[in-house]
Design a protein around this nucleic acid. Sequence first.
DNA 1: ATGGTAGGACGCCTA
Length: 268
Amino acid sequence: MTLTIATWNINSVRLRMPIVERFLRQLQPDVLCLQETKCIDELFPFEAFRSLGYEHLAISGQKGYHGVATVARRPLEVVERRRFCDNDDCRHISTRLSSGGHALLLHNFYVPAGGDEPDPEINPKFRHKLDFVQEMNALRADQGETHGSILVGDLNIAPLPTDVWSHKQLLNVVSHTPVETEGLEAMRVGGGWVDLMRRHIPPEKKIYTWWSYRARDWELSDRGRRLDHLWSSGNVAERLAGIEILREARGWDRPSDHVPVIARFDLD
DNA sequence: ATGGTAGGACGCCTA
């Protein structure tokens, strides 16, 4: 049997329901992890998801900012809404997915963007981002009483030189500074996580999942970054059958600035 | 070198 898991920073789930519907009808992933839902739980569009066959929802929302949601066609249960950096931002939810006798732990993350100034001494938002990644070190791929773990989301860091349109020009730009890229890679490797997009697509090849709204023509200039990630424990990575980055979604009507990324696994 | 756009919510913060 196959299991497909998608991640997408949706930049307001209520405003984006038309393209969420289009995506779910077209790709039909088993699970969709959303970030930046930007609405309190009471206002989450439950019915729209249910009518599309996504009847199992795990949400963690707040007013106006952040917010994550994991929606699925199969049963899932909330494991934890973890707090980071001693505040109540809704930036994480973990769920347990049962799939053909396997139980998978699925983390859905929205890492702080970090502001514009890449200096933690003068920019508290950048300090917050670095601290947040530091605290993510507690999450190990082999953790929990499950048969494997998956970690997805908008991590707001493009770790490899080929994860940005210009490595040289972005070295001092938040999302690609060495303190961030090295911190994220250390956390990933230390936690035993496999970068599934890079397992499937060689590191020489450029990959982007985000293009700024501010470009005159995002497609023509193609100044993108890979900010969205899918990781897993080694045993789950062995089952990876494919990765799809839905670049066309950046050109849909009223798009998010991020596109969905989908991983397909072949399980027994 | 700079400013460019978008969302939530209604003056301004965040990305």
